[in-house]
Amino acid sequence: MKKVAALALSTCIAASAWAQKDGKKNIDKLCGCFDVTFKYAETFSPNKDYQFHDREKITNVTELALPIVQTDKRIVIQHLLVIDDSTIVKHWREDWTYENPVIWIFKGDGVWEKTTVPATNVKGKWTQTVWEVSDAPRYQGASVWQEVNGHTIWENTTNAPLPRREYTQRTDYNILNRTNRLVLLPNGYNHVQDNIKISRTAAGDSIRAEEKGLNSYVRLEDAKCQPATNYWKNYAPFWVKVEAVWEKYMNDHTTVKLVESLGKGKSLNNQLFKLSDEWKNGTLKSNVDELIFSTILEHLQ
């Protein structure tokens, strides 16, 4: 009996080690220089009077997915848009952590709540945490990397705030329930989305529409993204400070309520970008850490 138990234990340990090592290998393939195409189409609504929104397609986007932290159990990838050789835009960030028990759940209207799940719930799983351009929280989910019909995939369903392409155009829903499926390909990967647009009120949830998304990442030669690499070398110290403020706040709190825009063009994104340029140019008149903290705090309730 002891031999059987020992064998079972060694099998579990081996399986966990394989999930960790193999998962990291897969996540590493999400890094690099890519030509990106974004496609979205609403497909269904339970409301017969619903007016479907136009399909959206954006092509020829050059994006660097730069690994800025790489350990056995944590990979951090910073995305940077290459507009041209002199214009780079800091984009979203994704953190991958192995067997992470802390999950932030989006509740709607700028509110996230922290929860701790049992270790068994994340055994062998990699958690993807996606952060806004401002390094504010966006969404988080855990799953295993697996082989399905000859494809290597990672899939999770979670609630998220509206993406920029939506919140700048409409206010008829406040939660995007998104199934994210990452499918590795020989020359890059696909980010396939099955999204449900939900209006959440005190009376309950109602579905506005369902949507299909396909973001295709086709690998380019690294030289195409060299301007983004140069940009990050210059600006990384500033954004590391921003990330540290968010990390401390979220470690110290169980709820985050974010107000992205305070009106009159005073958005968190714009304020932080302005600060980053002033920091880079050496024109800040106050301590940068204090300015970052006060700027972020102003948008939190």
Results as ranks from 00 to 15, higher is better:
97 T>N: 13
253 H>S: 10
260 E>C: 05
254 T>A: 11
146 Q>G: 08
226 Q>G: 00
98 Y>D: 11
29 K>W: 01
16 S>N: 12
164 R>D: 02
1 M>Y: 06
110 G>M: 09
188 G>V: 12
98 Y>S: 10
226 Q>N: 12
142 A>G: 06
146 Q>T: 08
105 I>D: 11
240 V>L: 14
149 N>D: 15
44 F>G: 02
157 T>N: 12
182 L>R: 02
297 L>R: 10
192 V>R: 14
99 E>Q: 15
82 V>N: 12
188 G>F: 06
31 C>K: 01
240 V>I: 13
250 M>V: 03
106 F>H: 12
52 F>N: 02
179 T>Q: 07
174 N>S: 11
200 R>N: 05
78 Q>M: 03
116 T>E: 06
103 I>C: 04
199 S>C: 08
111 V>W: 05
36 V>L: 10
74 R>Q: 10
256 V>K: 12
169 Q>D: 11
133 V>D: 02
93 R>L: 15
136 A>R: 00
279 W>T: 06
290 E>H: 04
181 R>C: 10
12 C>N: 08
203 A>D: 06
75 I>D: 07
10 S>A: 10
204 G>K: 03
119 A>W: 06
223 A>S: 14
28 D>F: 02
120 T>S: 14
42 E>P: 02
241 K>N: 03
185 L>F: 04
94 E>V: 08
131 W>G: 03
187 N>Q: 14
51 Q>K: 14
130 V>Y: 08
105 I>H: 01
82 V>H: 00
104 W>I: 04
82 V>E: 09
134 S>M: 05
42 E>Q: 14
131 W>D: 11
23 G>K: 00
1 M>S: 07
232 W>R: 01
132 E>N: 15
255 T>G: 00
88 I>D: 00
139 Y>H: 12
255 T>P: 00
159 N>I: 04
171 T>S: 13
190 N>D: 12
156 N>G: 01
18 W>L: 15
293 F>S: 13
120 T>M: 10
293 F>G: 01
20 Q>F: 02
194 D>N: 14
263 G>V: 04
139 Y>K: 08
163 P>I: 03
301 Q>A: 11
24 K>F: 00
262 L>D: 13
39 K>Q: 12
16 S>H: 09
186 P>W: 03
220 L>F: 15
213 G>D: 12
11 T>S: 10
287 N>W: 12
117 V>K: 05
165 R>I: 06
269 N>L: 13
96 W>A: 01
17 A>G: 02
116 T>H: 01
268 L>D: 02
208 R>S: 04
114 K>D: 04
93 R>A: 06
46 P>C: 07
206 S>T: 14
202 A>N: 09
47 N>I: 11
